[in-house]
Simulated assay, not measured.
Amino acid sequence: MPFSHFLRRRRSALLAAGALALSACSPIKLLDRLTPSDTYQAETGIAYGSAPRQQLDVYRPLPATSPPEGRRPLIVFFYGGTWTTGERASFRFVGEALAARGAVVVIPDYRLAPGVTYPVFVQDSALALKWGLDHAARLGADPQQVYVMGHSSGGYNAAMLALDARWLGAVGASPKQLAGWIGLAGPYDFLPMGDPDAQRAFDWPNTPRSSQPIAHVSAASPRALLMAASKDTLVDPVRNTGQMAQKLRADGVAVQTESFDNLSHVTLIGALATPIRWIGGPVLPPILDFVGLPSDLSDKVAR
């Protein structure tokens, strides 16, 4: 690569990183412009239900990528947005980061408030995860290596599917089918709630205690990887990630935690993006290690 081209890419990545650090929403879309498009195969706009937002995208490794087909983990990822905003296309950088290193990745949309309230977005998430479980083998993944993952309110969705058997049970599946769950800055214990968007999404104050993921931890819960920014000002990392890890361990569930001092609530997920992965702590390697993929990124550089 010519040095001048490298400098242009580096400058663009710096600008994207700066913009991402300044806002909690729209700069996520800027990452799409810099995310490689030749490191994976994609199938987009697949319906997992009849509602317009019940669609998902699939990111698959290229044929020569290790591990071989049939032995790849499948990760169903739910994005955040306080259950009121978000679209799957904005998180192509998550699909690329994981698919380029050997995972099959499913990124669904789900219905949002104020159009719906709890538990509809959890029910949509369960239906999307059931789709992933049913199609794992066809997509070249190992059906015994299916994981659910989410960031922020998407981390809540992931936690509810992994911990509260009602939701997968309603669609003919079970948390026992999961090899683990991954939460990035997820809210797991947030009653009473003060955020207006969250209040609308959960019909506050008529919100049942059973809506809290931490209430469903048991010895049967899948193993977990919990990650958070230590200075997160949107989702308290001590009350949520810290207490969830403590409760899981108390019930004998294997849990790994990762805390990052130099990342925010937003850059925690942004740091997965190939172009700006260097902005913060090593968020991607623990995820790869957790799902059984090589976590050495020394030979994978931003383009």
Score class of each variant (00 low, 15 high):
G270S: 01
I75Y: 08
Q246F: 07
T257V: 12
A250C: 12
A51M: 15
S230I: 13
A165C: 05
T257L: 10
I46F: 09
A224H: 09
V253E: 04
S125P: 14
I182H: 00
G292F: 10
A136L: 01
L178V: 08
T35K: 11
L288D: 05
K29S: 14
K130P: 10
S230E: 13
L20E: 05
S295K: 06
P237I: 06
A89M: 10
M1L: 05
V146G: 11
L163S: 01
S4F: 15
R53I: 13
K300V: 14
D203Y: 06
P114N: 02
S264W: 04
V171G: 00
Y118P: 04
V217F: 03
R239M: 15
L30M: 12
A103L: 02
A245G: 10
T207N: 06
L184T: 12
A100K: 06
F3G: 05
F91S: 12
T44L: 13
I279M: 07
F3E: 15
L225Q: 01
Q246N: 08
V104A: 06
D142Q: 13
L31Q: 06
P285M: 00
Y118Q: 06
A103N: 13
D203Q: 08
L225K: 05
T35Q: 12
S295C: 04
P237H: 05
V105M: 05
K231C: 00
R111S: 12
A224E: 02
G81Y: 05
